[in-house]
């Protein structure tokens, strides 16, 4: 009896996941869906201005630039990224980002969107770490952010559903959970200090709760336009900024440490639809 229900759970989750796969849905419709479902929508509704602006998200310009870059033959090998496999087969972008991080056999490791993109730019297009196309990680004018924002936009409305089939996927997710609770730095902070209760605030900003998948689904919906930065930002950038406030040293972009955290946080939003591209404070 017990065993049966344990087996049924992942199947049920997979079915829910498929139910949300909504091609053509707009980010504002996905957000509306999250708000309507939430008993504690304080985080989701905190900025009426951002909700109003979402249809005119400046990130759409970045998506457009990213699509052009994605399809353009580039790099020393002069090929496009259309053969890049983000986990659902070469060139398949629909719902790919919501199933990252995942294990990639060709690279032998668990990768997030950022590191998978860099992997393809190197292996398919022949770019190296010294090329500006790979070196510049942040800002709406960077190739990396244009491409990430485009790729992720194809996962709007899809439920977060990072695979946990490979032992490394599970190991990274579980280590990420430990890191989420690991207190360190000048202020003794861990991630949980700010992200484990509903409708808590730092000054006026309502914080997302990792235990509330509705909150968390929007919270991890990166890339998102940050209105206070006037740039589109990535998951990696969010990790960097949280750890900066926590008084930690610089975390390395694409490191396993960062991917483990992102694996845990993506798993925490499992089953809820992604808002992509999002607009955040």
């Amino acid at each position: 009896m017990l065993k049966k229900s344990v087996l049924a759970l992942p199947i049920a989750l997979a079915v829910i996941g498929m139910a949300y796969a909504a091609p053509g849905q707009k980010p504002e419709e996905t957000l509306d869906e999250l708000i309507k479902k939430s008993p504690n929508p304080g985080y989701l509704t905190q900025s009426p201005q951002n909700i109003m602006m979402l249809p005119d998200n400046p990130a759409w310009d970045v998506v457009e630039a990213g699509e052009k870059l994605f399809k353009e033959a580039r790099g020393p090998k002069n090929v496009s990224l259309e053969k890049c496999d983000f986990g659902k087969g070469p060139g398949v972008l629909a719902g790919a980002h919501t199933e990252l991080p995942r294990y990639f056999a060709d690279a032998g490791k668990v990768m997030d969107l950022d590191s998978r993109l860099v992997y393809c730019m190197k292996t398919l297009q022949g770019f190296t770490n010294d090329d500006a196309a790979i070196k510049q990680k942040h800002g709406s004018d960077s190739d990396i952010m244009k491409l990430q924002t485009y790729i992720a936009s194809k996962s709007n409305g899809y439920a977060w559903n990072p695979p946990m089939n490979h032992p490394l996927e599970k190991a990274m997710r579980d280590a990420g959970e430990v890191m989420f609770y690991r207190r360190a730095g000048t202020m003794d902070f861990n991630c949980a200090a700010c992200h484990s209760q509903s409708e808590k605030r730092i000054r006026a900003s309502v914080l997302p709760n990792v235990y509330d998948p509705l909150d968390w689904s929007k919270a991890i919906s990166w890339p998102a336009q940050r209105t206070s930065h006037d740039h589109v930002r990535s998951s990696q950038h969010r990790v960097l900024e949280c750890l900066w406030q926590m008084r930690y040293p610089n975390i390395k972009n694409g490191s396993d440490a960062s991917i483990a955290l992102i694996s845990f946080w993506t798993d925490a939003a499992r089953g809820q639809p992604a808002v992509l591209p999002d607009l955040k404070r």
Binding site: G108, K109, A175, V178, M179, P249, K252
Partner: peptide
């Protein structure tokens, strides 16, 4: 691209977390 030195799947979550934070070149230590 793969430092095939340690097998993450053989470590406890706590040991792997500690490794990722302090031994894996994940942070500018």
């Amino acid at each position: 691209a793969v430092p095939a030195k340690v097998d993450y799947t053989k470590m406890t979550p706590a040991a792997l977390a500690e490794y990722l934070v302090l031994e894996s070149d994940g942070f500018d230590l």
